[in-house]
Design a protein around this nucleic acid. Structure first.
Lengths: 206, 206
DNA sequence: TTGTGATATGACCGCCGGGTCATTAAAATG
DNA sequence: CATTTTAATGACCCGGCGGTCATATCACAA
């Protein structure tokens, strides 16, 4: 085993892992969290047993998939931050970016959403829930950091991050299944306004 | 079979159904959506087979439980509406009411939340998702109706309702697992302000 | 070409959970 | 109390899934 062959094999392995991850993605996009190891194997054009050569078990595989899906979103989000827009602009862009991202890649949305709570059918409920979300949390954490930088009251940052995150998610829940609906930009605009200015302005003139 | 005996049996049956429903509630509060028919039977002090005398199958049972849980919340919400408060007051009360309700009855929250998407592991994904949510939708619908009455732009009502609903849910996600945290009233106040006035006011003075 | 180690395979296992049904217990009836 | 009708039970069946492992296939070296 030379170092070079190590690298080679490592590369091959990485390729395999990625290919399986993509297969899993497709499987989950189709069947949601109910996707079977067999489903994933089929979708990866691979035998079920092979999956276990590259992943310890189902949990680890799903974990990886979720991670991979999120990474792409995080990259786009990071891009928004790097543009150093005003606060309002940033919010608008964040909303639009996430909406667009998942609108184009509904498969990723399915993953993001269905794996929201990892174990799914976990009996380790009550007490252990203090380590609640998976790497999805990374997204919320990133928002939190931004708010901490930019807000008067740093204490509120986590709540605001969650608020923003869940709020966009709410819109997506509506958008994804429906075939027709408001144009994406309209939804984004609507939500941004709401987030920024609140409900008060919307009361009937009366 | 006289009419009276019919009534009698019907009453007994209703009692049985209710008792099972409560058992199921406890089971789900413990184990979440992973709760087994056996779990439910145990929690109801009843044999598993008996469940099937009163419910067609697992789906129907969970459906009922979800319905029952929601009914209690809807009653409280209706109460808020009947008080004919101002718009702002209504929003604040809606937030507070839902937050309080689930804070006291975390078991119901678990049901409400975990059964959010009924089938759970349903393979009838993509296409049929146009009939997406369960009777939980009733809650959002009720909010929608309110917004339609009270808002300038009726078209926005469904989106606003969803927005309000998901937003409170987001806070609950945080609150429920955590043992300590901001006081309930603080959270409610925070969220209401946010909903009503938006993020804009929160930017750092700078 | 043949031998050898690495990789892939899918039949198989054990378990679990939904749902059934012959049997048993209880209640109603006379 | 005997009999019949109704309700409850839990052992059992079956399908499905996560995970394993003896076997087959492949890649490459000699």
């Amino acid at each position: 085993m030379t170092t070079q062959s190590d690298t080679r094999e490592a590369l091959l392995e990485r390729f395999r892992v990625e290919s399986i991850t993509e297969g899993a993605l497709r499987a989950i996009a189709r069947k949601g969290a109910a996707a079977t190891m067999q489903d994933i194997a089929d979708e990866s054009s691979i035998a079920k047993g092979t999956l276990y050569l590259y992943f310890k078990d189902r949990d680890e595989l799903l974990h990886r998939v979720s991670e991979a899906a999120l990474a792409q979103l995080l990259a786009k989000i990071e891009d928004v931050f790097s543009r150093k827009l005003t606060f309002e602009e940033t919010i608008r862009e964040l909303v639009l970016t996430k909406l667009r991202f998942f609108d184009e890649r509904r498969d990723l949305y399915r993953v993001h959403f269905e794996l929201r709570f990892p174990g799914g059918r976990d009996p380790l409920c009550d007490s252990r829930a203090s380590v609640p979300p998976p790497e999805r949390q990374m997204y919320v954490d990133r928002l939190t950091r931004y708010f901490q930088e930019v807000l008067e009251n740093k204490e509120e940052a986590p709540r605001l991050a969650l608020f923003l995150s869940e709020t966009v998610a709410a819109l997506l829940i509506r958008r994804i299944p429906e075939t027709s609906g408001p144009k994406l930009e309209d939804d984004a605009h609507f939500l941004s306004d709401l987030l920024l200015n609140g409900l008060s302005g919307r009361r009937k003139k009366s």
